[in-house]
Structures are given as C-alpha cells and as structure tokens.
Simulated scan of single mutants.
Amino acid sequence: MIAAALAEARRAKGMTQVEVASALGRRQPFIANIESGERRVDLVELIDLAAIIDLDVLALLRRIRDA
C-alpha cells in the first residue's frame, strides 16, 4: 500500500522516478525498487520522499490503519 501510494503521488506531482531519485541524491533504481515493492522504505526515507512528492504521511498511515 505504501509503495502504490508513493508511485501514485509521484505521478500526480508529474515527476519521474529519475527526478525524485535526483532530489534524494539517489539513482532511479532506488525509487523503482521501492515502488515495485522489492525494497522496503524506512520511516526517514518515507518522510523525505513524501516531502518531495507532496504526500501527506499521516493521512497515508490513517488509510493503512483503517483498511
């Protein structure tokens, strides 16, 4: 659910994986692996990603809790 939310928010922001990765100082496969679920994202990474793609982390966590 987190991976899908990150991908959806990134696309809604009109950003590519390359752009998000660059903003984080990472390479594109880092983002691809997170969005595909191959790599888990830790809390610090989630907060950093959310800031770049304008994702409300608290709203996401509430959605997960209520699912």
Rank of each mutant, 00 (worst) to 15 (best):
M1V: 12
M1G: 13
I2L: 09
A3S: 15
A3D: 00
A4L: 07
A5E: 06
A5M: 02
A5Q: 05
A5D: 01
L6D: 06
L6T: 00
A7V: 08
A7I: 06
E8C: 08
E8W: 04
R10T: 05
R10M: 09
R10E: 03
R10N: 05
R11N: 11
A12K: 12
A12M: 12
A12D: 15
K13E: 12
K13A: 14
G14Y: 01
M15C: 07
M15R: 04
M15P: 02
T16A: 04
V18D: 13
V18S: 14
E19D: 13
E19C: 11
E19N: 05
V20Q: 06
V20H: 03
V20S: 07
A21P: 04
A21G: 13
S22Y: 11
S22M: 13
S22F: 09
S22C: 09
A23L: 03
A23V: 02
L24Y: 01
L24V: 06
G25Q: 09
G25P: 05
G25C: 12
R26I: 03
R26Y: 07
R26D: 09
R27D: 14
R27Y: 10
Q28Y: 03
Q28L: 06
Q28D: 11
Q28G: 11
P29D: 08
F30I: 02
F30P: 04
F30A: 10
F30S: 11
F30W: 09
I31P: 01
I31T: 02
A32K: 03
A32I: 01
A32L: 00
N33Y: 11
N33W: 07
I34H: 06
I34D: 03
I34N: 03
I34Q: 02
E35G: 10
S36L: 10
G37P: 06
G37E: 07
G37F: 08
E38I: 10
E38T: 11
R39P: 00
V41M: 00
V41R: 02
V41S: 04
V41E: 01
V41T: 06
D42G: 11
D42C: 07
D42K: 02
L43C: 11
L43I: 14
V44F: 09
E45T: 07
E45I: 00
E45F: 04
D48E: 13
L49F: 07
L49D: 07
A50T: 05
A51I: 05
I52L: 13
I52Q: 01
I52P: 04
I53T: 04
I53G: 00
I53F: 06
I53K: 01
D54Q: 10
D54P: 00
D54E: 14
L55R: 02
L55M: 03
V57T: 11
V57D: 05
L58E: 10
L58N: 11
L58A: 15
A59T: 05
L60S: 10
L60F: 06
L61V: 15
L61G: 13
R62A: 15
R63E: 15
R63L: 08
I64P: 08
I64H: 07
I64C: 12
R65M: 13
R65C: 14
R65L: 14
R65A: 15
D66E: 14
D66S: 14
D66P: 03
D66G: 09
D66W: 00
A67M: 10
A67D: 14
A67S: 15
A67P: 04
A67V: 07
A67G: 15
A67H: 08
